[in-house]
């Protein structure tokens, strides 16, 4: 039977004097955000893929209709932040387990951090500033 490498963590003590225990907070974050994400994402999937005509109904007008209410903007904004940080921290765990060379390990974690940070900025801008009827007529949904 094929075997898989045992998980390995780059040797660095989780507990460092005077710096708090970040790994413990990461562990707690994964569980708290995980529970919230189950609720948020199951709700998102039900409303966007199951209710009504499902994927066929999703377009600019569909999103504009949802984001007319602050409820769905907060819902989607929470999903954005919680899921990106949850996923980024999960990817960091995998990099620590499988990327043994220090330079590769650091480069991959920087790539994950940048991807998460850039998408949080772009996504937060979109979910807060979105306007279906901007003054530029070529971008406007309201004729």
């Amino acid at each position: 039977m094929a075997t898989i490498d045992a998980p390995r963590t780059v040797p660095s003590p989780a507990r460092r004097r005077g710096r708090g225990n970040w790994e413990k907070w990461g562990w707690i974050y994964m569980r708290v955000s995980g529970v919230l994400l189950v609720i948020l994402i199951f709700g998102h999937l039900f409303v966007n893929l199951v209710a009504g005509d499902g994927i066929k109904a999703v377009d600019f007008a569909f999103v504009a209709g949802k984001w007319a209410s602050p409820f769905w903007r907060v819902w989607d904004g929470l999903m954005l932040w919680l899921a990106l940080i949850h996923g980024g921290n999960g990817m960091r765990t995998l990099v620590n387990d499988y990327a043994y060379r220090p330079t590769v390990n650091r480069a991959l974690k920087w790539a994950i951090f940048l991807a998460v940070a850039i998408l949080i900025v772009l996504g937060t801008y979109t979910v807060t500033a979105f306007d279906p009827c901007p003054s530029d007529p070529s971008l406007s949904f309201c004729q």
Partner: peptide, 21 residues
């Protein structure tokens, strides 16, 4: 891992909302 990579794409496609209908 699969969900993470989809998430990256899915946020980028949502950012296109800023470029009009």
């Amino acid at each position: 891992v699969a969900i993470f990579f989809f998430l990256l794409v899915h946020i980028l496609d949502s950012v296109v909302l800023n470029f009009g209908p």
